[in-house]
Structure formats: C-alpha cells, structure tokens
Amino acid sequence: MALLQTRNLSVTFSTADGPVHAVNDISFNLCRGEILAIVGESGSGKSQTAFAIMGLLARNAHAAGSVRFGGKEILGLHETSMARIRASDIAMIFQNPMTSLNPYKRISSQMTEVLRLHQGLSRREARFQCIEMLKSVNLADAEIRFEQFPHECSGGMRQRIMIAMSLLCRPRILIADEPTTALDVTIQSQIVELLKTIRQVYGTTILLITHDLGLVAGCSDRVMVMYGGRVMETGPTEEIFAAPVHPYTATLLEAVPRLDREVSELPSIPGNPPNMLGPIPEGCPFSPRCQVGDQTCFTRIPEVSRSGQRSWACLKRDKGTGHETVAGN
C-alpha cells in the first residue's frame, strides 16, 4: 500500500475577486522509499498540493477530497493533531532558505526546540542529536554553525540546516518545495545529491516539488506533471522523458535546452498560463494552448488513462491511440 494516498484533492481560495481553484481533483500515490517529483509551471497548483497535505494552507483556502497517511485520513485533521504529524511523520522544507529560518534565534535553539517538543529529549541529548544531524547533511564546522545565527551562514548552508532540522525526528516523508530554486547552480546539485543520500541512508520518501526539469531528471523515480491545478501525466521519470504522452509534457520537454540537440531557437508554448480565477473550466485546462486538441477538449474533462506505471489525462491520447511506449500494454 502507498505511504501517502491523495484522492480527489481540491484546493479553493476564496478571494475578494471570487473563488480561485488552485488544485482541482487530483489523485496520486506516494510509495514507500520513492522520490516523486511534481513538476509544473508557477500557478499549476504543485505547492498548494503540498501545503494541503501538510495542513498548512492559508486561512482563506479550503481543501476537499482525501489525503491518507499510512491509511489514516489526515486532511481536515484538527490543528493540534496535525502538529504532531508534522516534522515527526511528514516534514517539509521550503524554497527560500534565506528567509525560512528564524533570523532572531540561534540555529541551536531552533533545532533543539523541535526535538524537545516531539521527542521530549533533554537539552543535552537534543543538542547532541542536532549536531550529529548537521554533520550527516555535510555541514562544515557543524559545532560552530550550530551556535550561530542564520545570517552568519550562506544560502546553501542554511538549506542544509533546514534539511537537517526537518530530518531530526526521522520523518517517513520529506516534502521539498522547490528546495534549490533560490540557490546557485553548483549548490543546487549538492542539495540534490544530499536528498538522494538521505533517501538511501534514512529510507525517507521524498516528494520533490519543482519547475526544474533538469532536477527531476537527475533524481526522481517518478514524475507527476501538473498544469492548471490538474494532473496531466504521471509515470516513471525515464519513460516520461523518453516518450511523453500528454501534449503538455511533450511541449514542455521541447522547451528545455539540451546539450545533445542543436536548435537555433528554443521553442516556447504559445499562449499564457491559465487564469485560475472564476469557475473551474469545463474542459482540459491546457486546451487553449494545445496544438493537438480540438473543440471537444474545451467541453470535457479527460478521463485518466492508464498503461502500466503510466497514466495521463488527455482526450486525444486515449489508450491504444498508437503511442509507441503505450501501445501493446
């Protein structure tokens, strides 16, 4: 059974201009020990999906559907029960390490606080475990850094500290929301390597949220592509990169610069990302920009088609429409 099951999850924000449907009816499984990457452009609903799982949505947001962790429903759980799950079962790290640590408190005080709260450790024991964890995320001079304030560390160090802090209680799931976006390229690859090591050493299941396809290719086992608050396509990373089924995935991959292919101009997807304000569109959210679709795409939400480990939601890519990797399954 999957460690985390999400069924028909929707997130709606009530705003002064009307409801914003950030996430519409998405379902996916997170399996024990895997790294699942959710990719999508800004506003595709990937971060809100993570916040909904953590119960950290903004006050004006409402989540519907089901999120089960280890078979237990956790969506809509009371704040105090949810607080017990956070960090000890499901932990989360964020996009900007420069702002996600409290600048007014020493790293030592922020880290030990978590351990003392969830595991009731003594100050001394907590301190010992924190330093051990800082060492295991390869933070140089862990003992010195431990006593410093966040502003005395670089961005990469702070993201390591965030990761160490999130792992203190050995959570089964780590949700990493764009963990490398705010870092420079060399540090990015170090953090990706660190995430892979963590999975190996602690067996942590990782939900990686990113818009960086290179990052996805480098470390995830499976990919879930989101657009306009819906899941477009899900499948093993290698297969999706080799042969995308959904037209959105295909155009998205074409827009990525590659070293092994020479193009004079990098293609972009025509049109604009969808406006999430107002009623939920009746058709596929990608239909206004899709090169493959026709009128029917505007009026019908595509069913999810499955083949092996892959699934996709597109009217024009039904099962057995002749796509190489899908055919014959």
């Binding site: 953590m54 950290l56 704040e79 105090t80 607080a83 017990r84 799950i85 956070r86 960090a87 000890s88 932990a91 989360m92 790290i93 964020f94 900007n96 702002t99 996600s100 640590l101 409290n102 600048p103 007014y104 408190k105 606080e113 978590v114 709260l117 969830h118 965030m162 802090m165 999130s166």
Partner: peptide, 23 residues
Amino acid sequence: DFILTARAMGLGFGRIIFSHALK
C-alpha cells in the same frame, strides 16, 4: 516564511507566538 517553517516543524500556536514571533 520562518513562521511557516515553525508550523511545518509541528510547533504549537502558543509556542510560535512566544518563541518565534514576539521578539
């Protein structure tokens, strides 16, 4: 952002106010 982090770390409301936000 760091208040969101504190919530994600499972800290309770009172602790977030007094240990993280007040200062």
